[in-house]
């Protein structure tokens, strides 16, 4: 995990996390900016895709997924010894995009989180009710976002971080 990224690799990350050029040979252009050949850049991007360093490489589109207008952060209070089993069941649901176990905190007793996507808030509640029945846990809440204050992509390897 403590992999060292060379300064050249860090420079490549900085360029790839931004917009790639819309010109005939974009990887050659990126390569000349970081001192690598086109072939080296292509090989490095493929390596990073294969080992998961790059999660996704492509266009990020502005609109939300068609037909999925509502999303809810569901939070569940699950006995620690059941967390792994219950987490897998929640993650299996097609309406769930993200699922994590997190620590509890002061005033926050929920340890499992699942993002639910559906057409309406009511449908999110229905999905959660079905999941609750499946896992036999009734202690949960749905948190809907009423306002988006910020949504950006992370920029890595910059001075200020």
């Amino acid at each position: 995990m403590d992999r060292i990224f060379t300064s050249q690799e860090q420079e490549l990350v900085r360029l790839l996390q931004d917009d790639i050029p819309i010109t005939a040979a974009p990887f050659a252009e990126i390569g000349s900016a970081v001192g690598m050949s086109e072939g080296e850049v292509v090989a490095k991007v493929k390596e990073w895709l294969a080992d998961g360093t790059i999660r996704r490489f492509g266009a990020m589109v502005r609109h939300q997924r068609l037909g999925y207008k509502a999303n809810a952060m569901s939070a569940w209070d699950v006995p620690d010894e059941r967390a792994e089993e219950v987490g897998s069941v929640l993650a299996d649901a097609g309406e769930v995009s993200h699922c994590y176990q997190r620590p509890r905190a002061e005033g926050w007793n929920y340890n499992l989180f699942a993002m639910i996507h559906a057409a309406t808030p009511e449908e999110c509640h229905e999905v959660a009710a079905v999941l609750a029945g499946k896992i036999g846990i009734e202690d949960y809440e749905l948190l809907f976002s009423s306002r988006e204050f910020k949504k950006i992509s992370m920029t890595y390897f910059v001075e200020q971080d």
């Binding site: 996390q17 931004d18 492509g58 990020m60 992509s153």
Partner: peptide, 25 residues
């Protein structure tokens, strides 16, 4: 499509852990 804003960005999304970063909610 980039100019009209339909495409927000075209590039890589990195896994913060693989880059040695920590993340939290």
């Amino acid at each position: 499509t980039k100019e009209s804003g339909e495409i927000r960005r075209m590039g890589a999304s990195f896994d913060s852990r693989k880059l040695g970063y920590s993340s939290t909610l």
